[in-house]
Simulated scan of single mutants.
Amino acid sequence: MVPSPSSTHPPEVDADAVAAAAARLVGAAGSGVPCAPVRDLIGADDLPGAYAVQAAVTAHRLRAGARVVGRKIGLTSPAVQAQLGVDRPDFGVLFDDMAYLGGDTVPIGKVMQPRVEAEIAFMLGADLAEGPLDHAQVRAAIAWGAAALEVCGSRIAGWDIRFADTVADNASAGAYVIGPRRLSLDAFSPVEQRMSMTIGGDEVATGNGAACLGDPVAAVVWLARTARDLGDPLRAGQLVLSGALGPMRPVAEGDVVVARLSGLGAVQVRFGKGERA
């Protein structure tokens, strides 16, 4: 569980504002109706406040029976950082009900305002709680990598987000799809992956491993250190979505999305009929 705001964040975080922002996002998720941005409550650049809201929303999900299975890293692309006026990535929580396998059909109503991006997913085979948490240690802790599609979603109407909005909204996490080919880091190089993503057979995005903070493993290093600093280190058995290898694209009912990575093969998902689970 992400630590509670009271245990993680400094006294200047406005507890009433955090509670109001969390209630707004929880209400949107429950009703399926997107809400107004929360930056009017916590400030557009209030990093502690935003993570406090995320923690409150996470606590709500856990009380409702959800289980944390990993983390996702967002804002790894320089272009997206420039768009939002930030110079750092963010992270969110992956829950058990977000997980799909390659070839599955995701109900279009599962994720609000869905957009898809291609990534590399890493499974951790060891805890990342002690030591320098440098590239060598993080690399050694990764059991395997796989091609993945992240289905990003926003509870905020029209994706009208700034940094604090997306952090508070669990880094715009929605669902994810893991491809069938899973390789150790001895068998492929994350930074050298070339990616092509198609929707309905038309190529809509290309990219490579270097687009993700210069190296997807470097993104996991950042996450491991940040998670430990917040008192909730990464653990063996958790999945990490390391960040987009190329642009994010919107999807609609009936779309078939395929991402092909040069060393990890293809991962596919179809968006079908259906409402929120």
Rank of each mutant, 00 (worst) to 15 (best):
M1H: 13
P3G: 13
P3H: 11
S4H: 04
S4T: 11
S6F: 02
P11G: 04
V18R: 01
A20N: 05
L25A: 13
L25F: 07
G32W: 04
C35G: 14
A36Q: 14
R39D: 09
G43P: 01
A44L: 06
P48V: 02
G49M: 06
V53D: 00
T58C: 13
A59F: 11
A59M: 11
H60A: 15
R61Q: 14
R61G: 12
A64Q: 15
G74M: 07
G74H: 04
L75F: 06
S77W: 00
P78Y: 02
A82C: 03
A82M: 02
R88A: 14
D90W: 04
D90E: 09
F91D: 14
V93H: 04
F95I: 13
A99L: 12
Y100S: 10
G109L: 07
M112E: 15
P114H: 02
I120W: 02
I120Y: 05
I120F: 07
I120Q: 04
F122I: 04
M123K: 13
G125A: 14
A126R: 15
A126N: 15
A126W: 04
A129Q: 13
A129N: 13
L133A: 06
H135V: 14
V138W: 01
A140N: 10
A143I: 03
W144I: 04
R155H: 09
A157I: 05
W159F: 11
W159H: 12
I161M: 06
F163T: 00
S172G: 03
V177M: 05
G179L: 07
G179D: 06
R181A: 14
R182A: 11
D186C: 00
S196N: 04
M197Q: 12
M197F: 09
I199H: 08
A205Q: 08
A205F: 08
T206Y: 03
G207A: 08
A210K: 10
A219D: 11
A224F: 12
L230Y: 12
P233M: 07
P233N: 13
L234V: 14
S242C: 10
S242M: 06
S242K: 01
L245Q: 02
M248L: 13
M248F: 02
R249M: 11
V257I: 05
V257S: 07
Q268S: 15
R270N: 05
A277I: 07
